[in-house]
């Protein structure tokens, strides 16, 4: 396995507030990684920095590429489609993806769309939150890249849709690609994970193998994650 993501000495402030400090992180290829942390911990920010839509000091390398435009061609990040008006038909958005991303696999997208029951003739405005999230995930996973960043893919959606999304992640994950899933509800994704990265106190608190947590510490991931915050509260 090779390193797919390398983050070194990353520091980021926004509006005079420190969000991330001295972040160092290395991820290998072929893993499903849980990026965990409370609301506002900096999970989304870290993903945005990796994709290059936000800027910080420090070094980020994805699949050996450090230049922002090159990095973008190795990362597929959940785009919340804010650039498209609500009247846009889904097939037009698919066409957009097909045109601007040379790694976009239409066949794979069609399979995913079938699997997730997405009706492409609809307009964006006709989608429920869950269906929009499914559509976004289908778009994100249909690119053939080394690193997928799924930012809170289960946010505000029902349990059936969650199951569909989890199944689609398992089924369509390319063997050598790494998928990073951010969430603050660990129970939903713990069974998926090979590794966890916890952001706490503006930095990476821990980066551990999921099996090691289960075997060495005798805890499931959810309990381990909660224990990090209990310790924090005891210290307070």
């Amino acid at each position: 396995m090779s390193d797919i993501l390398k983050v070194e000495n990353l520091n980021y402030s926004h509006r005079l507030k420190k969000i991330l400090q001295d972040v160092n992180l290395t991820l290998e290829s072929g893993k499903i990684v849980g990026l965990l942390g409370e609301n506002g911990a900096g999970k989304t920010t870290l993903m945005r920095l990796i994709t290059g839509v936000a800027h910080a000091t420090g070094d980020i390398t994805v699949a050996g590429a450090s230049r922002i435009d090159e990095r973008k061609s190795h990362v597929s990040y959940m785009d919340h489609l804010g650039a498209f008006s609500l009247g846009t038909h889904l097939d037009r958005i698919v066409k957009f993806y097909q045109t601007v991303y040379e790694d976009f696999d239409v066949d794979r997208f069609n399979e995913l769309a079938d699997f997730l029951n997405i009706d492409l003739s609809l307009k964006l405005s006709a989608l429920s939150k869950g269906n929009k999230q499914k559509f976004v995930i289908a778009l994100t996973l249909s690119r053939q890249v080394e690193l997928y960043l799924l930012d809170e893919p289960f946010d505000g959606i029902d349990s059936m849709s969650r199951k569909d999304i989890i199944n689609s992640i398992i089924k369509w994950k390319p063997e050598n690609a790494t998928i990073v899933i951010s969430d603050h509800y660990v129970s939903e994704i713990s069974s998926l994970l090979d590794e966890i990265v916890v952001i706490k106190d503006e930095t990476i608190n821990c980066n551990l193998d999921a099996d090691k947590i289960r075997e060495d510490k005798g805890m499931d991931i959810e309990d381990f994650y909660e224990s990090l915050y209990e310790r924090g509260h005891d210290n307070d």
Binding site: V53, D69, E70, K72, S73, Y77, D79, Y101
Partner: peptide, 16 residues
């Protein structure tokens, strides 16, 4: 102007 600040466009792998 909105094109400069929207993820859908800025995520596209192309030089600035």
């Amino acid at each position: 102007e909105s094109i400069y600040t929207r993820d859908s466009y800025r995520l596209v792998p192309i030089s600035d």
